[in-house]
């Protein structure tokens, strides 16, 4: 049996108020995959991510993490990080201490964690701002701190919920390239939600197009993982074709969501 990072077995989520956020979903995520989730708002993208982060429990069905239960998550080679839609930093701590937080929670001593924090800050080009407080940073910088905090544990699975939604396009493209480089270098599996199909096309090896009422996977779209993701790719015809295909799928998914809502 091939190892899966995440295996979702007919997991379904109905909220206490009766809203079905997610219809039963079955999905396997393999090592080094980079999965982009796109779809109209309210189609359960965040819900799916929270199920995987164990922040929600499935109403039925189950999930496994590296073929084990969630109790094993966080151990060596089974690290999971989540980048929220908002930076969610601690306003009372410096950038350095914010990034160090997951290591502190693991009980790693500051001497050991210091170089790792420094390295994570360098990845997001924020080493110069280590001693500043979140209130002194721009929105883009805060988001980069949040990413550094996710990377400092050297995660094997990185979950991101519309992480760059509030950033300008140039910053976003640059961060996307950094993430792509990181994924290529490390043993990193990526699952991210985005409302930009360009971002999905640029980063993903597999795009999940979701539809709403109830939340479900509407279509899957594979992108050759061997294509290097760089500026050249962004300007290529292949990229344009992928974006067109995704655009069509997204329109179909919205129509399907609307029809389901009326019905």
């Amino acid at each position: 049996m091939q190892e899966t990072v995440i295996s979702i077995q007919s997991a379904e989520k109905t909220f206490p108020n009766g809203v079905q956020g997610l219809a039963p979903i079955t999905l396997d995520i393999h090592p080094k995959e980079r999965i982009g989730l796109i779809g109209p708002s309210g189609c359960g993208k965040s819900t799916l991510l929270k199920l995987i982060a164990n922040l929600h429990q499935p109403s039925s069905g189950y999930l496994t993490w590296w073929n084990k239960g969630f109790a094993e998550v966080g151990k060596e080679n089974r690290r999971l990080s989540f980048v929220f839609q908002e930076p969610t930093l601690m306003p009372w701590s410096t950038v350095r201490k914010n990034v160090r937080l997951p290591l502190d929670l693991e009980g790693i001593s500051p001497d050991v964690s210091a170089p790792r924090v420094q390295q994570a800050l360098e990845i997001v080009s924020l080493a110069h701002a280590a001693d500043r407080f979140p209130a002194q940073l721009s929105g883009g910088m805060k988001m980069r701190v949040s990413i550094a905090r996710a990377l400092v544990t050297r995660p094997n699975l990185l979950l991101m919920d519309e992480p760059f939604g509030a950033l300008d396009e140039l910053t976003r493209n640059r961060l996307d390239e950094d993430i792509a480089t990181l994924c290529a270098k490390d043993d990193l599996t990526l699952l991210f939600v985005t409302h930009s199909l360009y971002e999905a096309a640029f980063l993903s090896t597999r795009v999940m197009v979701m539809a709403a009422h109830p939340g479900r996977i509407f279509a899957e779209y594979e992108i050759d993982p061997s294509i290097p993701r760089n500026e050249e790719f962004r300007l290529s015809d292949t990229f344009a074709t992928i974006c067109q295909d995704l655009s069509k799928l997204l329109i179909q998914a919205s129509q399907s969501s609307l029809l389901a809502e009326v019905a």
């Binding site: 982060a53 929220f84 969610t88 601690m90 929670l105």
Partner: peptide, 9 residues
Amino acid sequence: GLEAFFRMH
């Protein structure tokens, strides 16, 4: 969000 972060870790 921070509460979720602490819980997740």
